[in-house]
Design a protein around this nucleic acid. Structure first.
Length: 1017
RNA sequence: GGGCGAUUAGCUCAGUUGGUAGAGCGCCACGUUUACACCGUGGAUGUCGGGGGUUCGAGCCCCUCAUCGCCCACCA
């Protein structure tokens, strides 16, 4: 056993043990009606890139739960897999295509591009799964799924078919967020807003044949002047006076609630409003009347007649009070257009250039057209004013280019019923969300019941299983698909065609004789397949044994930003397809932020590769460290640095260098590569790992555990298993067993309620502060004593065994390594009925708390012992007495305390080289001594010949000051009649006792000081 | 604009039902006592973001302000 290294070497065991687990088939789970299942489906990582620490946290927690439950006897299944992540992945591959080959996707064509993306997917899937395995994730790897594989595809087809058949799916024109770069619609969730510098152009449109007294022009303002080409109306409020009244009332309310700071600002708005009544209102009233009279305007540049309409969307308190209406290119205008039954003129091509509807501007990009519109309006004298303005411009999260609102044909899922079902499942507790504060957001979002746009103009994804039949008649379809229940069709009145949906088999172009079918080119939103993940991976729509056994799954572990996008949709899809919720509990974990407080993401490039952390600290340190940080409310800030491979100095990670493929060391000037290295010349450089000192705690802890195990192994020679009677147990045995029972109980409870940090802290403190610092120290002498050695060995092996089990979910590798070493020295363990230990800790039983081991008296004795021990060590330290020099001490305390402490005499000797002389009320301070006052106990160390009188006096003076302050405070409290009258009696009593104690401490110090002063003279 | 969370030692974070604050790292001193220097022993360090309030008593409860982060909505 002496050949075990002093420091735990993580690299080799991690590889070896993972293989061992895999060979033994521990990861695999099969349905077994005799056992209870515990199931987690992984949130499938996107194949866009490698995993970062956020994923590492997510998966560490899942593995902790899975391993914990597996040890508790559940038939545990962790279903792994990855997500095709439609837009994100296609965008990455397209971007590279453009960068490296200067080609667009159209140069390649659909088939070739999809082929490229599959290659990418294969690379990254492998990398991702490799990262998970390296972390020790105990997924059932044989069941690994991908959201585009055949099993998932089948589920998607069945779901779409079902929804189509039930009329939950419809096709419609909708204003979508158009990404002109990727040429696809993106969902609201994929849009972010960014402040950019822009302008606010005020322009006027002429009124056609104005009558006397009527305005000749209507002024409008816009940040996007080119959209005027698509204007189909100008709106004015139907009752501008009333609208102003309301605006004023609102302002008044605000003013009443406002603080002094905002008041001037609000008051000036007040003035502006009054001004408006005088200047703008009369015009607006006239315009309103004109609108009601059906008067029309001439849209300049395209010379189109457009109506003036009365609509409440126009706010008389803003701008000119009139607003141009571009229904095809603005969400609000779209609503107005529908209300007012206006034509919708789409002026945009999918690539962001203007189309034929823009007349002379056809073919120009938006921005070019903008310049020209402005110039020409100016030339016509219709440009009134240009203001500079900050504009909150919508951008596509995927391509980072500005979004154009765009009217397009899209597929939708009707959400009213489905959303309601998902709301009910959470409201009535069939799905529980932890922490519960996330429930409200879930309900609010679903409560809007907005229909879900599911089509994407992409090539990477599940192609929508719809075929268009523009020429066929219903009779043709009936004839062609007679007797088939896997094909349904519906009339698309708007486009005058049939929509045919096929459940599993694709339809051939000529499936309807005499007509040509055209397949819908769009693919489905990624979340459509993700929504099915919990049941599609288990084989739905087949009623597989897996689906019956593992569904609903037990827990879902994810981060808060996809509660709506993903969690909500899984709930509604699960309910709709399977008729049961997909999971019982959802745990929302914190986010890992970088040193700047920003969330880690692939797009930002600030992700830290867990491999770097594992290389340096080990997988166990990564996992334990992350779990240790997983508290309920707090996101985890993780400042990181590069470790220079040349000089090993730490190089600060800045916002700039964190995305570079190669970085220059600020110390030695040597260059190194980063996780972003891609080109061969960058990859050739030595790798500079990204590290964080935040994993040192866990790394050190693993090492501590390793060394405790080394100690045990060194001392287990001659170990013989045997039942240990209670009477044979020493005081430290009873203590550590009592503590073990409490810790077992609390760790179990913490894990069961997702309090990961609590569980880790419990175990850390127990293993380090109690087991290593006290139990191991105290057991040393017994291990040397032949009569006591046997029992000591058995208890030592037993407690170490329990620690390994408790820590295994968080730190699987090191616990397994030690477990197997321990099997060599003590293959049969246990105190009541020793039995052969399992061949792997991974399949060992989770420890059960043994309440009968709990011993309050022993724990109290230890608490007092530890206090006194600390006091003795403190005196030794402040008096500078070398550890080798023995000291003598006495303790003045009541008889009961003396009885508790006296049996610990040998431990004071072994752990502080101190010998107790007098215990109890009769103890008196020796002539020269150092003292420490503990609660109800005064500790005197005899320092004859040792004392540093000045040091001791200085300390006593300081202590006296502290006590005096304390006494003053307590006296004040106790002389407060209110306190005496209102505080509970026991609190008052405690306070009195405390005061007495502190007073006697002070008296004792005064006495010593007097004595010391006398001696000095 | 609405909501959620955060603000505690130099850094990163804990803090149970309200009873004058803790950990790890870092810092200082001492130490190589055969499990461990990725260690041991001891020490120093806080107007618990500001201001009000409730209470005998507030880090904890209430109000308010400030700052940071996230989510949702809106911005001709």
């Amino acid at each position: 056993m002496n050949d075990l290294p002093k420091q735990y070497q993580h690299a080799e065991p991690e590889q070896r043990l993972f293989r061992f687990w895999e060979e033994r088939g521990y990861f695999h789970s099969e349905p077994d009606p005799k056992r209870k299942p515990y199931t987690i489906v992984i949130p499938p990582p996107n194949v866009t890139g490698a995993l970062h620490l956020g994923h590492a946290l997510n998966n560490s927690l899942q593995d902790i739960l899975i391993r914990f439950k597996r040890m508790q006897g559940f038939n545990a299944l962790w279903m792994p897999g990855t997500d095709h992540a439609g837009i994100a992945t296609q965008a990455v591959v397209e971007r590279r295509l453009l960068q490296e080959e200067k080609k667009s996707r159209h140069d390649l064509g659909r088939e070739k591009l999809v082929e490229r993306i599959w290659q990418w997917k294969n690379d990254y899937e492998q990398r991702i799964l490799g990262q998970l395995k390296r972390m020790g994730c105990s997924c059932d790897w044989q069941r690994t799924r991908f959201t585009l594989d055949d099993v998932c595809a089948r589920a998607v087809r069945h779901t779409f078919f079902k929804l189509f058949q039930e009329k939950f799916i419809y096709r419609g024109k909708r204003l979508v967020n158009w990404d002109t770069y990727l040429q696809t619609a993106v969902s609201d969730d994929e849009v972010y807003h960014e402040q950019v510098k822009g302008h606010f152009w005020h322009m006027k449109y002429p009124v056609i044949d104005p009558r006397p007294g009527e305005p000749t022009h209507v002024t409008i303002a816009t940040t996007r002047p080119e959209t005027m080409l698509g204007d189909t109306a100008v709106a004015v409020h139907p009752d501008p006076a009333k609208a102003l009244d309301r605006a004023e009332a609102e302002l008044r309310q605000k003013l009443a609630a406002a603080g002094d700071k905002e008041r001037p600002e609000l008051e000036s708005q007040f003035g502006a409003l009054a001004e408006r009544r005088k200047t703008v209102l009369p015009t607006l009233v006239k315009l309103r009347n004109m609108a009601l009279a059906g008067r029309r305007l001439l849209l300049p540049l395209v010379d189109r007649e457009i109506p003036l309409v009365a609509d409440e969307w126009a706010k008389p308190e803003l701008g000119s009070g009139c607003v141009k209406i571009t229904p095809a290119h603005d969400p609000n205008d779209y609503e107005v257009g529908k209300r007012q039954d206006l034509p919708m003129v789409n002026i945009l091509n999918p690539d962001g250039t203007l189309n034929v509807a823009a007349g002379a501007y056809q073919g120009q990009p938006m921005l070019k057209a903008r310049e020209r519109v402005v110039a020409e309006m100016d030339a016509l004298g219709l440009l009134v004013e240009v203001e500079d303005r900050e504009i909150d411009l919508a951008h596509s999260d995927r391509s980072k280019t500005p979004i154009e609102p765009y009217l397009a044909d899209q597929w939708f899922v009707k959400m009213d019923q489905l959303a309601q079902s998902a709301m009910d499942a959470v409201s009535d507790g069939r799905v529980k969300i932890f922490p519960p504060r996330y429930v409200q957001g879930y309900l609010d979002w679903l409560g809007e019941k907005r229909d879900w746009p599911v089509s994407r103009q992409l090539w990477w994804g599940h192609q929508i299983p719809i075929w268009y039949a523009p020429t066929a008649t219903e009779a043709d379809l009936q004839k062609a698909f007679a007797g088939r229940d896997d094909v349904v069709w519906r009339r698309d009145e708007e486009q005058d065609q049939w929509l045919i949906c096929a459940r599993e088999q694709d339809l051939a172009e000529d499936s309807v004789p005499g007509h040509k079918l055209a397949r819908e080119q769009d693919v489905l939103d990624t979340w459509f397949s993700s929504a099915l993940w919990p049941h599609s991976t288990l084989g739905w729509p087949e009623q597989t044994p897996e689906l019956k056994y593992y569904y609903p799954t037990s827990a879902l572990v994810t981060s808060r930003d996809i509660i709506t996008l993903w969690v909500a949709r899984m709930v509604l899809a699960g309910l709709h397809n399977v008729g049961e919720v997909p999971f019982r509990e959802v745990f929302i974990h914190p986010k890992i932020l970088d040193g700047y407080g920003e969330g880690m993401s692939k797009s930002k490039g600030n992700g830290v590769d867990p491999i770097d952390v594992m290389e340096k600290f080990g997988a166990d340190a990564l996992r334990f460290g992350l779990a240790h940080l997983t508290t309920e409310t707090q996101d985890v800030r993780m400042p990181v640095e590069f470790e220079c491979p040349h000089c090993h100095k730490l190089v600060e990670q800045t916002k700039k260098n964190r995305v570079l493929p190669r970085v220059k060391c600020t110390q030695c000037g040597g260059e190194f590569s980063t996780q972003w290295a891609d080109k061969p010349e960058d990859k050739a450089l030595p790798r500079g790992a990204v590290v964080s000192e935040r994993f040192e705690l866990a790394r050190n802890f693993c090492n501590k555990l390793w060394n405790a195990a080394r100690f045990a192994l060194l001392n287990l020679e001659g170990y013989a298993p045997a039942a240990v009677a209670d009477a044979e147990l020493s005081v430290e045995d009873r203590w550590i067993l009592s503590r073990l029972t409490t810790v077992t109980d609390e760790t179990t409870k913490a894990l069961e309620s997702y309090r990961f940090a609590d569980a880790m802290r419990q175990l850390y403190e127990f293993a380090w502060d109690e087991f290593c610092s006290f139990y191991v120290e105290m057991v040393k002498s017994r291990l040397q004593a032949p009569q006591e050695r046997g029992v000591a060995q058995r208890v030592l092996a037993h407690v170490l065994d329990a620690i390994l089990r408790l820590l295994h979910p968080a730190a699987p590798f090191i616990t397994e390594e030690i477990w197997q070493l321990l099997a060599g020295a003590a293959p049969e363990r246990g105190l009541t009925a020793p039995a052969a230990a399992a061949e792997s800790v991974m399949i060992a039983d989770w420890p059960k708390a043994e309440p009968r081991r709990h011993d309050a008296e022993i724990e109290l004795r230890f608490a007092r012992f530890q206090e006194v021990l600390r006091g003795l060590r403190e005196i030794r330290s402040r008096q500078n007495i070398p550890p080798k020099t023995p000291i003598r001490f006495s303790a003045r305390c009541d008889a009961a305390t003396a009885d508790l402490l006296q049996p610990m005499a040998t431990y004071f000797a072994s752990m502080a080289n101190a010998q107790g002389t007098v215990w109890g009320p009769q103890a008196a301070p020796p002539a020269t001594h150092a003292q420490i006052n503990l609660k109800d106990l005064e500790l005197f160390v005899d320092l004859e010949g040792l004392i540093d009188l000045d040091a001791e006096m200085a300390r006593l003076e300081k202590e006296r000051g502290r006590l005096q302050g304390l006494i003053a405070g307590k006296e004040k409290k106790l002389s407060n009649a209110d306190f005496l009258a209102r505080a509970p009696a026991d609190v008052v009593e405690k306070e009195r006792a405390a005061l007495d104690d502190v007073r006697s401490q002070l008296a004792s110090i005064e006495q010593s000081l007097t004595e010391f002063r006398r001696r000095k003279r």
